[in-house]
Design a protein around this nucleic acid. Structure first.
Lengths: 339, 339
DNA sequence: GCTAAAAATACAATCGATTGTAAAAATATG
DNA sequence: CATATTTTTACAATCGATTGTATTTTTAGC
C-alpha cells in the first residue's frame, strides 16, 4: 500500500508537491480548479498530513504540555477541563502528563515535552519539587512556562495563576472561630509547597487576630493522604485534649480525620468541627458533608492557559513573571455547623 | 543564541553530523574518545534531540495514544496507571486524551493521534460511539488498536481487553438474591455500549435462574449520572411499589439512588439493598458503604498496553482480534448487608 | 616497511511538509 | 498582435536527525 504523502498525490496528478501542499493549506496561490482536484485526490488516497514533518518544518507544534501531580484528583481534572477549553478555542492541542508527585517523573516529562517541541508548558509541581532546575530548560529553549496552583518561587521567566491560599486558610479558620471553636488545630501539607505554607499562614493569622492559641502542638504535618488524617486525630487528642475544631490542608485529610474521630467516638461537628480544602466531589457526599474551600479549578486552568497562549503568540515582548491570583471561597456544610 | 542541533555540534568540533548522531545514540561505530568529546560538547551547548526530526526519519514515535471518556473517573485513571506502568517498562511514552463522552471529540482525537504518528492506540469508547468508522483509519494507516473495557464489535483488526460484565452483573444480582431480596430492579447504562448490555444480561440471567420476575418495569435506563439514580428511585417506587433491591450499572448511579432513597425515607439496606459497579473510591467512604463490583483497572490497563506493545513490536504476524477477558469481583459492604 | 583487514569517520540521500523565488501560463493593455 | 501584468505552477532549499555506503585512518600480520 502507498503511504499517501503530498508527493504521492503530486505524482499521481502530475503536478508539483509544493502546489499540493499549498492546496491542502488552502493557499490563495492555488486556483480553485486545481485545489478541488487535489482535495479530491487526497481524500481518495486517504491522505493524512504528517504532523511530525509539518511541525519540524514550521518549527511550531500547536501543542502545549500540561503537567499535574495526579489526573485523578478532582481539582486537577477540573483545571484540565479549563485548560482544554481555552486551548481548543485557539486550535491548540493538549498533552496531559502526571508526575504522580515524583520529582524524577516530572523531570522526565519536562525533558520529553521539550524534545517534542511543545509550544509551551503548564505545570502544577509535585510535592517533591523543591527547586526548578529542570524547569530552567524551558528558559533555555525559549519555551513559555506558566505555573498554576502549586508553584515554586524564583523563576522570573514564567507566569503563574494562583489562588490566594492565605485567604483560604484565613477564611476557613475564621469560619471555625465564628462557629464558636476555641482550640483549633491545623493538619498541614508538605512544607516545601508554597500553597501549604500559605494556608498555614492564613490559619495562624486568623488565630492571632482572634487571640487564640496556635502553638506547635496544634499544627501537625501530613502528606495529604486520608490515612494521615486518620492517624493524626488520635495523636492530636493524645497530646492536646480539648480541641474543638480542625482545619485540614485538603479534603482527603479532612475525611480521614472525620473517620478517625468517628472511630474515637467523637461526633462531628458538635465535639469537633472540621473544615477541608479543595471541594472534592466526595466532600459533598460523605456524612456529615464537609465544609471546605472551593478553588474553582476550571477558572484557574482557563486563565493559566490563556496566559500561556498569550506568551506563545506574543505580540508584544515576553510578559515575564506575571501573576494572577484568584480568591477561593468557603462552602459551608454540615461538618462545621455547630448549634 | 544558537539552536544546538547535531550540525552545530559537528561544526564546532569540525566533524560530520552523522558521527555526532551516532555518538549521541551510543553507536559502536564511534570510538570512545570521540563519543566523550561529543557528549561533553552536547551538554555544554545544551543540546536537546529534536524528536520531531528523529521520529520523522525513523518513522516511529515510541509513543502510544490513550483515549478514555474521562480521566477523572477512578476506573479510568487506574487503567491509565496500569498503561503507563507497562509503557514505561518498554520505554514508550503515553499521550492521554479524554473524549468527554463525545463522539466528535473522540474522532478529532483519533485523527490527531494518527497525524502525530503514534505507534498505537488504546481506547475505551465514548457513550456516543455506536460504530467504529473513525477507528477504521487505524487499519488504513496500519496503526495497532486495542480496546479496553468499553469496546465496539466488528472491528476485526483490533485486540481487546475486557472484563466479564455478564458475570459481574450476574454476581451482583445473585448477591442481592442471596441476601433475601425478591424484587430487584436494575438501573442500566447506555444501551449502545456492550458492557452495559452485558451487565443487564447478567442481571436477567440471575433473576431467571432464581425464578424471579424481571420485566420492563424493573429495568430503567440511565445515563450514568448521580442525578439519574436520584430521580429513578422515585420513578421506580411510583410504578413498582415493593422493590427491595437495586443493582445499578455504576457506582455514581448507585450513590444517587441511595441519596434518593434516603430523601424518600427509606433505609438502606433494610428497606432496599443496593449494589453498584466499579468500586469507585467514594463507594467505600459513603454511609452506608456501597457493595460493588471491582474491575481491577490497573490490570486491565497493563494487559491492554502489553497487548498493544506486542502488536507494535510484532515479531510474528499481526495478532488480530485477540480478546482477553478478566473476571471482576464482588466487594461486599454495608449497602447490601441485610439482617 | 608494506599490504590486508578492521575500525572510524565522512558523504549523501532520506523522512514529509513548507516556503521563497524563478519560470511559465493566463490575462490585460494599448 | 506584442508587450506588460497578473496568476498559477515548478524548482529547490530547508527543518534536524538517521543510515547505507564510500572513504580514510588505524591496526594487524608478515
Amino acid at each position: 500500500m502507498k503511504k499517501a504523502t503530498i508527493h504521492e498525490i503530486a505524482r499521481s496528478l502530475n503536478i508539483d508537491s509544493s502546489t499540493v501542499s499549498r492546496a491542502l493549506n488552502d493557499s490563495p496561490l492555488v486556483k480553485k480548479a486545481t485545489k478541488d482536484l487535489i482535495l479530491k485526490k487526497a481524500r481518495e488516497m486517504g491522505y493524512k498530513r504528517n504532523l511530525l514533518a509539518s511541525n519540524l518544518r514550521r518549527n511550531k507544534s500547536n501543542t502545549i504540555g500540561v503537567i499535574v501531580p495526579r489526573i485523578s484528583r478532582h481539582f486537577f481534572s477540573s483545571t484540565i477541563a479549563g485548560i482544554e477549553e481555552a486551548a481548543y478555542k485557539d486550535g491548540f492541542n493538549v498533552i496531559i502528563c502526571q508526575s504522580l508527585e515524583q520529582l524524577n517523573r516530572e523531570q522526565r516529562i519536562v525533558e520529553n515535552l521539550l524534545q517534542n517541541r511543545v509550544d509551551g508548558i503548564l505545570i502544577s509541581v509535585s510535592m517533591e519539587t523543591l527547586k526548578g532546575s529542570h524547569l530552567e530548560q524551558c528558559a533555555v529553549t525559549d519555551t513559555p512556562l506558566v505555573f498554576f496552583d502549586r508553584h515554586i518561587k524564583d523563576l522570573p521567566y514564567s507566569g503563574q495563576v494562583l489562588i490566594d491560599d492565605f485567604h483560604g486558610g484565613f477564611v476557613a479558620t475564621e469560619h471555625l472561630i465564628l462557629k464558636g471553636c476555641k482550640k483549633i488545630a491545623h493538619f498541614t501539607g508538605p512544607k516545601n509547597l508554597e500553597i501549604y505554607k500559605n494556608r498555614l499562614a492564613g490559619y495562624r493569622s486568623a488565630m492571632e487576630e482572634h487571640d487564640l492559641e496556635n502553638n506547635g502542638n496544634l499544627i501537625l504535618p501530613s502528606s495529604l493522604m486520608e490515612s494521615d488524617g486518620f492517624k493524626l486525630v488520635a495523636k492530636l487528642l493524645d497530646t492536646v485534649g480539648d480541641v474543638d475544631g480542625i482545619f485540614c490542608a485538603n479534603d482527603l485529610v479532612a475525611i480521614g480525620a472525620m473517620k478517625g474521630l468517628k472511630a474515637l467516638g467523637k461526633t462531628i461537628p458538635d465535639d469537633i468541627a472540621i473544615v477541608g480544602f479543595s471541594n472534592e466531589p466526595i466532600s459533598e457526599i460523605i456524612e456529615p458533608s464537609l465544609t471546605t474551600i472551593d478553588q474553582n479549578g476550571e477558572s484557574i486552568g482557563r486563565l493559566a492557559c490563556e496566559m500561556l497562549l498569550r506568551q506563545i503568540t506574543r505580540t508584544d515582548k515576553m510578559i515575564r513573571n506575571k501573576t494572577v491570583v484568584l480568591t477561593p471561597k468557603l462552602i459551608e456544610r454540615e461538618s462545621s455547623n455547630r448549634r
